[in-house]
Design a protein around this nucleic acid. Structure first.
Lengths: 360, 360
DNA sequence: ATCAAAAATGTAAACCTTTGCATTTTTATT
DNA sequence: AATAAAAATGCAAAGGTTTACATTTTTGAT
């Protein structure tokens, strides 16, 4: 039936049918097929049906790369995170990805392990793939990366913080405020001897903001944090557990405020191992409300950071930016966080002040 | 300085410089610049330096899409997972991604939430992006997806299982064996009344294999699993905790074998809440050895599934397949799993047989 | 039926790089 | 120094789609 047309592509892309094959089979020109795929409504119904049939029969799959060649959008969006392998970000990633899929875009994700130089190389690599837009987690970025994006006018959003890089719209929560609030909760419970477990804040602006929040709350309450109460701890349950056990054995505070929930989980398990009761003997709070924080025993008092909403909003805002190319108004979006009081915190009973209240 | 060459591209890709701009500035032809980027060693040193300088000054970023048009590789590889937001897969993903990055490829990831139809649509979307290769998690896939990949001869690997789809090389662990082994451990400890907590096995072949493993081990030991001991439980800590509490309150078994570590964590916390001691009163095992399983209290006895190694191996094997296009020998790779005995299991003291041993 | 306007379709150039082949330059050999 | 062989470079076509512009078909009003 199909005549051995000599003009057929020799062996392109492993012989996969192209737009022209579909066109020939449907008895229309390539242009029409192209139009059918890009805006079906501008081709007449009968034609449309013929094209659809031909495409289906041939198993045609469009080649977006050839399209992107024309300055057309590639339909891919980049997401750059510090790490994938972490409950912190996986919710965010999934929400972002799903929202993108809903709008027929594909996500390219890459992680740089908190290495800002590697982030630059990732951004370059994404740009080579002609991403339509990009989302960067955090506020700290190398100038080179931001510059490349600016020069090419690639729509960009920064995630996870509420105040961002100037010129880049930011979607996230106020890390400072979250930390402030959860610390205030501890202060309200009369805790005065509070230990901090935070990761290195050098190239991690989220952790930095949070720590500042804790410090400010403490300061406002007239509490001075003794030097040795500022422990450094990675985002890792095992090390947090170990560290907490050391601290609890030698010189237990009445409360811990942790850089995130993973650290808090570690502290809780350390306490359990030592037979120290939470919250009776010591209170623990985290930040993040990760999956599992509600189910752990005791359920963790923490700050709910709406990762899914951030991911979803970010995708939406980015897509909106793509559609109207006037990347004009850069407005930051702050998504509120809430302290969730569960069972890992209690009134400090060892404090003199508290004792007075109890005895009074 | 730069003459207003009328031949310049009108406004391509937002005025970003192309290979020809670099060529002009370096005083060579476009072909040479192209060669410089693809195999630097075939252009002479002085030329090379001029090109590099020009590219740097112009801030040139190559356009891999235009390159891919020539049947050349796009440099992107797809990874399709059931879900990202889950400790099960995030290690795998990260390892896969990192290995790819090492070989200068980019990963496109997508999740289908255990919906095989959506997987088909994802595969199509990836194909539109001209991925060079693809990794699919699991053994259950819609024919349409496999067929599309086969027609286009896209190198494919299946992950996570050890026995796979015919014709697709598979890299993973033996889920059956893992489950068998961990169950055997429980049997060795004289447990006879064992409860199963597994998710719906309908479109989840991993869970199905594991369950079969448990059942076989039980059967081999001459233990018949009473109907009501086969509980269905999602991969979610909170529901596992709730379910475990219900079970423990009404009719406690002496041991739980859980579909994965997340479920096991839930069981442990449920037991803690009820004041039931692990392992003294009840033993618990998981499968997976997720991040945190060693740090939890009590540390979880489980099976270590080398997710990172699977991810890394998969990426390597895929890349190797890309390089030599003869997708000839399809060999499955089984990466061994190991039972890790920690502190959540103990000899069953309530069993008559055990009592005899103790009293004997 | 007729004609103008609107809608649908076709033609061909353009998008940016890669690559086969031709040409020039370099290197090695005598 | 001359020559052949090898290496480096240039020229131009190709790769699959989009799109401005030209052309044809349809629609709606008379």
């Amino acid at each position: 039936m199909n005549s051995p047309d000599p003009k057929r592509r020799s062996r392109s892309r492993k012989g996969a049918p192209g737009i022209l094959d579909v066109a020939a089979r449907a008895g229309v020109s390539g242009a029409t097929v192209s139009r059918y795929f890009n805006s079906p409504d501008i081709v007449r119904l009968p034609t449309r049906e013929r094209i659809e049939k031909a495409a289906r029969e041939l198993g045609y799959i469009r080649d977006r790369m050839a399209g992107a060649l024309h300055g057309k959008m590639s339909g891919t969006v980049g997401l750059v995170v510090p790490t994938i392998d972490n409950a912190i970000f996986s919710e965010l990633i999934e929400a972002f990805s799903n929202e993108l899929h809903l709008h027929d875009r594909t996500m390219i994700i890459a992680s740089h392990n908190y290495d800002l130089m590697r982030e630059v190389s990732i951004v370059r690599s994404l740009l080579e793939r002609r991403i339509d837009g990009i989302a960067l987690v955090g506020r700290d970025h190398d100038i080179a990366a931001v510059e490349m994006l600016k020069v090419r006018a690639v729509p960009t959003v920064a995630l996870w913080n509420s105040t961002g890089v100037p010129g880049i719209p930011t979607i996230g929560t106020d890390n400072f405020q979250s930390a402030f609030d959860i610390t205030q909760h501890l202060i309200d419970l009369k805790h005065r001897d509070i230990a901090l477990l935070f990761p290195d804040t050098h190239s991690n602006d989220r952790a930095r903001d949070r720590k500042r929040g804790v410090l400010n709350a403490l300061n406002d309450a007239g509490i001075t944090l003794s030097e040795h109460r500022d422990y450094q701890c990675e985002y890792d349950m095992a090390s947090a557990k170990q560290l907490a056990m050391d601290v609890l054995r030698i010189d237990a505070p009445t409360a811990f405020v942790c850089g995130n929930d993973v650290i808090a989980h570690g502290v809780i398990h350390g306490a359990i191992r030592l037979g120290i009761r939470i919250p009776e003997d010591v209170s623990v709070v985290g930040i993040g409300d990760f999956r599992g924080s509600a189910a752990i025993e005791p359920p963790l008092t923490t700050v709910r950071l709406p990762a899914r909403r951030i991911g979803q909003s970010a995708a939406r805002i980015l897509i909106e930016q793509l559609q109207r190319s006037d990347a004009s108004q850069v407005c930051d979006t702050t998504i509120p966080s809430h302290v969730i009081v569960r069972e890992s915190t209690a009134l400090n009973t060892s404090c003199a002040e508290t004792r007075n209240i109890r005895e009074g």
